[in-house]
Design a binder for these strands. Sequence first.
RNA 1: GGGGGCGUAGCUCAACUGGUUAGAGUGCCACCCUGUCACGGUGGAUGUUGCGGGUUCGAGUCCCGUCGCUCUCGCCA
Length: 632
Amino acid sequence: MHEFRTHTCGQLRKSDVGQTVRISGWINSVRDHGGVIFIDLRDHYGKTQVVIDPTKEFYRELERWRVETVVCFTGTVVARTPETVNPKLATGEIELVAEAMTVLGETEQVPFQVAKDEDVPESLRLKYRFLDLRRDDLHKKIVMRSRLIEELRRKMWSLGFTEYQTPILTSSSPEGARDYLVPSRVHPGKFYALPQAPQQFKQLLMVAGFDRYFQIAPCFRDEDARADRSPGEFYQLDIEMSYATQEDIFAILENLLTEIFPKFTTKKINAAPFPRIPYRESMDRFGSDKPDLRNPLEMIDVTEIFRNSGFQAFTKNVANGGVVKAIKVSGIAAGSNSQPRRFYDEMIKFAQESGAKGMAYIIWANGETRSPIVKFMTGNEIPELEAKAGIQDGDVLFFLADQKALVNSVGGKVITELGRRLNLINQDEFKFCWIVDFPMFETDEETGSLIFSHNPFSMPQGGMKAIMEKNPLDILAYQYDIVCNGIELSSGAIRNHQPELMYKMFEMCGYTREIVDEKFGGMINAFKLGAPPHGGIAPGVDRMAMLLADAPNIREVIAFPFNQQAEDLMMNAPAPVDMKQLRELRVIPVPQELKYEETFKKLLAEAEKVRAAEAAAAAMTAAPAQDTEAGK
RNA sequence: GGGGGCGUAGCUCAACUGGUUAGAGUGCCACCCUGUCACGGUGGAUGUUGCGGGUUCGAGUCCCGUCGCUCUCGCCA
């Protein structure tokens, strides 16, 4: 018989009754009835009830029958009597009557319960992540993530893509997020950078003729955390295609997402093609470039209605170049949905806290309008609003008036808040959309000069002709985002593969040819030697897993995540290193801030030890003293 | 770097307006129980109330500072 197990804890069924078997796992729970003891033994595959007669010799081998001890039981599979069958357990029709036991791994008191569904502070869960991962909920999420990656790979291969690895140690990219740097031992004072994304490599693979590339790619960015953004590292399904148009890439992603998502969720998914929403339209309607389309609310521009109104607050704003926008909420002023006065006060307060000077509203109820502002309206504002917004009895319009950027920003937040408060968001669906037509350039608010608004390597719509003839601020890029339920899954672009066009665009943003060659030489030189048109996208694997697992934050679908401060509390990373390593890498720490003082003292002590050891070694071999840089 | 929230037993939480020996559940320890399945019962141990200072006759509670966690703005080509 196998030393540890003949079956897993999720395997035994009625058909195994009568067999002598061996199973191993963690003690999930102990139910001691004096004359008989029940143990639920748990492993990756499931749970099996083990029955123990406490008069048996082996019972005394284990001093404490603590949960989370790892034990091995040998015994006979017995059918449970009908009234003792446990329908909640896959193995619930049988139990193992134990005849022998071996303790494989003892445990101290666990810092939190594995088998019970209790809240545990996340810092503790992260410190004991291996315990947390034993818990059913998290365990299943991590398995689901693994299966998701398997399905993504399978689908990409079936679509004709091939997976290639790209370097982890590479050079610092000149734009974008902060890099993680790795000092070079061979080249003192020089650094590798961990890739923020394999962007340039995947483009070079296209130049190299591989045609359709994908990779489950690790990416590293030294940026601060959010609920949907893990600091440090994350994975993306990195995709690049040669001879592809924007629509070709959309078709691939739509095919992939509509096929893969249903394998992991019962939620409804909107059918392809997903809506394509131009960036500026998205900002105007939803106040965001990642709208949650489950929320039916959007902004309606009513500026013209108030250009010549008697309501001075709005009219003056319009005269000053501002806009007036309305958000229609249907049916909240009639019947059982009717909102109390307090609701309007709270929403106004919310708008003010979000940056608005105020927020007005008009209620249509019982054939008349109620509003603090209607009395100021002298013309046809009310019927015009009714026509423009399609008002019915019971509807409410909220108004924001200010400069456009502020109205969009506050309006976006108000839409989200209204959706949340009024339960307008259907939790049982995924709504995807594409945000397209991002502007290629924008004006830097501080300097007033032209800058790339997103990615300098995207292809401008209209190509060189547009660059030469159009107002740069009117030029759009073949740059797009895919958004699901208000979460940005990925950006992507058709790349600019024409060196002369790239030089010209950088020149417009104040970069000379020499600077472009210096910063982006690797890629631009490749483009000079025959580059196919290409483009791609890179949806975040962690974010897809988070959506599918219905997880409140991204750490729930990562086996060993950093905390918000980019620390691994279990492995104690980052950590000080010893002086010997620092010396070898020619990295000498400088205590610029008080909080480094302790680290520095430690390092000095280390250095002293190294020096003493070297001195001793030198004395032994009578060799002359080596370099004495330590401790500088 | 800025703003909000939180910090009391191993864990989850309570403790009025500042007032007795800081409680409960769970876990832990001991004992009882032959059909439970998050078993049940009886008893017990466990606290620098994150840390430091202050106000007060008296501080878990109020004030100041500090540390940690979390959400968020900046940031994320």
